[in-house]
Design a protein around this nucleic acid. Structure first.
Lengths: 213, 213
DNA sequence: AGGCTAGTGACAGTCACTGACAGTTGACAA
DNA sequence: TTGTCAACTGTCAGTGACTGTCACTAGCCT
């Protein structure tokens, strides 16, 4: 934006500092490991004082999830944008399958996609980060449940279906993410395929007899 | 156990120290809050040095989840004990519904149930603890998925159904837990009812048209 | 130009957690 | 019973995440 860059030298400087800290943090985290990286090292790499790091991020974790929150809000918008005639689970499915491309683009503006993917694997392989990731997902699911309830004109507290539907969807997504990260093919296409595969397995998984298949 | 108490004075002393630390920790956590409680306070309340606390628990969190792990292993055993003819989701449902009573009894031997319930609410209301709780649940789900796969003679990595079924179940359980904690009626009966209510909602939640109901 | 204030660095302090070392005390054999 | 061993514990020092404070620099605005 023209206005944003013209909005003073001060703003630009802040943006540059934040970016430098973010890149330095992710770069160090993904190379030497999350726990093994100290805030002092990040600050030094970004050429600021340790205190300044904490003025931009609430903590080490905050730096890791800064980009994630971008992707999350994109997903929320994608769900909101689904046509009202779609069944809830179908809307969620389409939102995630179609949303990944635009998410990727939005992320690219802040940091290289390759770094983002490395960050994702970092989260899955670092217990402390994985825990926080799950908590954030839980919060996201609550938001999505309310959106779904609104779509269908229901009260989230009176009808269990919105929360249950989102919980089912979220559960399947987590299984998918985990497998994707553990696998070789770290591409959006692979993720899309894996997602569809798992979502299609929900019906059969609830069936009485698995042996029939 | 006779053998346990006869197993030397040393063992008994250790047990007493661990119990004292556990009670002191949970008592302080649930009264002044998790973050606001320092390890020094816990150690002082249990009349040992701070260093000793860390010899019994890996960290503050460890104390909180010490009791939880009891309940978890009980659930795993309950699932293992389900008859093979039951459908996977049915087995999980029965295991959790019937397991709570025996879980409660097992917990009672270590700390008062009332303290345990307070601890449960503490976890739900403390972000850091809730995050860890979700991570532990994820690990538990992986274990359960393998058990289910074994029951059905399947390979967890080749067939998505075991993980998906467990993820669905786990997702529903988390919604249930959350609501139970937030509600007024903190009894096992209420939990049982809430669980059944939510599990019964899975089918309808996946349906094409919600309005029909 | 000069005052205002956001942004920063330097410093001190708290708290979770760890390693090292020495003292104490059950366990167990002689 | 006694002496030795190993387990358990306390003390101390140190690291690293995070916070409050304060003085200072540098954009901003009149």
């Amino acid at each position: 934006m023209e206005t944003a860059s013209r909005r003073g030298l001060r703003e630009r400087k802040k943006q540059r500092t934040r970016d430098a800290l973010l890149r330095a943090a992710l770069e160090l985290f993904t190379t030497k490991g999350y726990e093994a990286t100290t805030v002092d090292e990040i600050a030094e790499a970004a050429d600021v004082s340790q205190r300044t790091f904490f003025r931009y991020f609430a903590g080490k974790e905050d730096a890791v999830f800064f980009v994630q929150s971008l992707a999350e809000s994109h997903f929320v918008e994608a769900v909101r944008a689904r046509p009202a005639h779609e069944a809830p689970l179908e809307a969620l499915r389409q939102a995630i399958l179609e949303g990944w491309d635009s998410i990727g683009e939005a992320v690219e503006e802040i940091i290289p996609t390759e770094l983002h993917l490395r960050a994702y694997r970092l989260i899955e392989s670092t217990p402390a980060l994985f825990a926080t990731h799950l908590r954030r997902s839980a919060e996201l699911e609550e938001d999505i449940a309310r959106i779904i309830a609104d779509r269908e004109g229901l009260d989230v507290d009176a009808d269990p279906r919105p929360r249950v539907a989102v919980a089912v969807f979220g559960g399947v997504m987590r299984v998918t993410e985990r497998l994707w990260c553990a696998g070789q093919d770290i591409t959006v296409e692979a993720l899309r395929e894996l997602t569809a595969w798992h979502l299609d397995a929900v019906g059969p998984a609830l069936a009485e007899k698995w042996r029939t298949n």
